[in-house]
């Protein structure tokens, strides 16, 4: 998201021009579609190597109860994100800021849980180089965690912009695009949670 897009109003359809609003949103959906392929490739790789633990630790390390709690946190962050967008559309910037802050905090909580989980796994002997299982597991969940971290940074930027009065109600598309990205991160986790954690128990 460029500084230009934050500073300028959103132009609408008019003769001889093009609809920047729709173009940016279409661009975001193309990006999310390509991200599906990206994560699809990594999920496929994990499925390919899920049983190749090379006599090292494997899925028995997973604490499904803990990961379920993390999943719940991320699901609820999607709720707070959509409520932030809704408040923004109602031009209630203060309410939107509260929900955006809540979303960023829930995202940070999810990341803290992932860091804790990774630390536990490394102590139990599962590292990136232990086995193909370890490599594909850390690559998949690590890339997802990186996406969450980027989302938290974007949400934090939104909160800062709104606090300093630089995020007005006519810039709702910026909140919507960050929201789309955030919900995408959530749906990727829905797939990872089902395939990587639940189906391995």
């Amino acid at each position: 998201m460029s500084a230009h897009s934050v500073a300028d109003p959103i132009p609408a359809d008019h003769e001889g021009g093009f609809d920047l609003h729709r173009t940016r949103k279409t661009g975001m959906w193309v990006f999310l579609g390509s991200e599906c392929i990206f994560f699809g490739a990594m999920i496929s790789t994990f499925l390919l190597y899920r049983n190749t633990t090379a006599d090292g630790p494997g899925a028995e390390l997973f604490d499904v109860a803990f990961t379920s709690a993390s999943s719940f946190v991320l699901l609820m962050s999607s709720l707070t994100m959509v409520l932030a967008h809704n408040a923004f559309e109602r031009r209630d910037i203060r309410q939107a800021r509260i929900w955006l802050t809540g979303t960023a905090l829930l995202g940070a909580t999810f990341l803290a849980g992932q860091i804790f989980e990774f630390t536990e796994f490394v102590h139990a002997g599962l590292t990136m180089s232990t086995s193909p299982f370890g490599s594909s597991f850390y690559m998949l969940t690590g890339f997802h965690g990186a996406h969450v971290a980027i989302g938290v940074m974007m949400l934090t930027a939104m909160v800062i912009l709104s606090t300093s009065g630089r995020l007005h109600h006519d810039r709702g598309l910026n909140v919507e695009l960050v929201g789309l990205y955030w919900h995408f991160v959530d749906i990727v986790w829905i797939v990872i949670f089902t395939i990587v954690y639940l189906l391995q128990v």
Binding site: L32, G33, S34, G40
Partner: peptide, 10 residues
């Protein structure tokens, strides 16, 4: 556009 990505991964 989105479903193209979803089903493209299959």
């Amino acid at each position: 556009l989105f479903l193209l990505g979803v089903f493209g991964s299959i």
